[in-house]
Design a binder for these strands. Sequence first.
DNA 1: TTTCAGCTCATACTTTCGGGTGATTTTGCA
DNA 2: TGCAAAATCACCCGAAAGTATGAGCTGAAA
Lengths: 162, 162
Amino acid sequence: MIRQFFSTNKHALLYGLSLACLIALLKGLEIRYFIFDHSIEIYIGAIAIIFTALGIWLAMKLSRPKIERIVVEKEVFINSGPSVVNEKEITKIGLSNREIEVLRFMAKGLSNQEIASQLYVSLNTVKTHASNIFMKLDVNKRVQAIEKARELGLLNIEKLPG
Amino acid sequence: MIRQFFSTNKHALLYGLSLACLIALLKGLEIRYFIFDHSIEIYIGAIAIIFTALGIWLAMKLSRPKIERIVVEKEVFINSGPSVVNEKEITKIGLSNREIEVLRFMAKGLSNQEIASQLYVSLNTVKTHASNIFMKLDVNKRVQAIEKARELGLLNIEKLPG
DNA sequence: TTTCAGCTCATACTTTCGGGTGATTTTGCA
DNA sequence: TGCAAAATCACCCGAAAGTATGAGCTGAAA
């Protein structure tokens, strides 16, 4: 505790010591006799000025430089969230391969019949897939499903998972 | 020149003045007589310490801080395309105020009936608006309309035009 | 081998959408 | 004050979407 104080304030103590030495020196030289006896105030004033200067110098030396930190926010534009398909979400939700295909066609605005034609399956199959998609995404309309899929990043162009 | 010096060093001059006042005060109180005559050195030491402290304080006050600029990169995600509502497109396409409202509800996945309830109008009215929207956007399915609106940046949150 | 998930398809039914047409009321602007 | 645009509502009909249920087929895992 005390040792720490000594080590951290080493400079200050040193300066204090040299200060004391200076006083001793002043006394030793008997400068005050050099000045007229009635002008003790001048002497004190001189002392005051000297030590004020010393204090300023001390402060300059000791005080760590005052640093004013100005935080400049530089805006870095990033081209929209995850452009990579969010496979984690897909597996978490449990969407099958085929279901994601259907989901993406749905998002492109194709009707169930059109999706059926694209995938070479029947309309009923597409409807079943759609129902399962809605169940897994916890919605009951295709627009909501698309909305949710968009939020979760399921609609990005990439190869289908595994 | 001189005036500028006075104005810029106003604080320093003030402190100097108060310093002089302090000396006068010390003299006025004749503190030195309170202290034993032979211990004039103690008096001087006290003066020295006081003015050193004063100097330090002065330095603290006066030293202007070093300014350090810290550039922080703030990531701004662009939601692909204009994040501000594209009023030009709206006026170009000729979508009315109400139609945009309906369009946005549609994009949230609400059914026509739900939109009607939200807007306190009849289902038929919403259907009419929807038809007009499809006509103006040159599509024939709500999912396509939403898709197109999203491309054109018509779905961003902002006050409606007009 | 059995089990199970995924994909397929079907039937039947209800709800919602979308297109077409026509009409009345509000409202902003000249 | 009157007109044009906007907003409102109605009715009909067919198409599409969504719900519910059941079932056959396949490949991989237990």
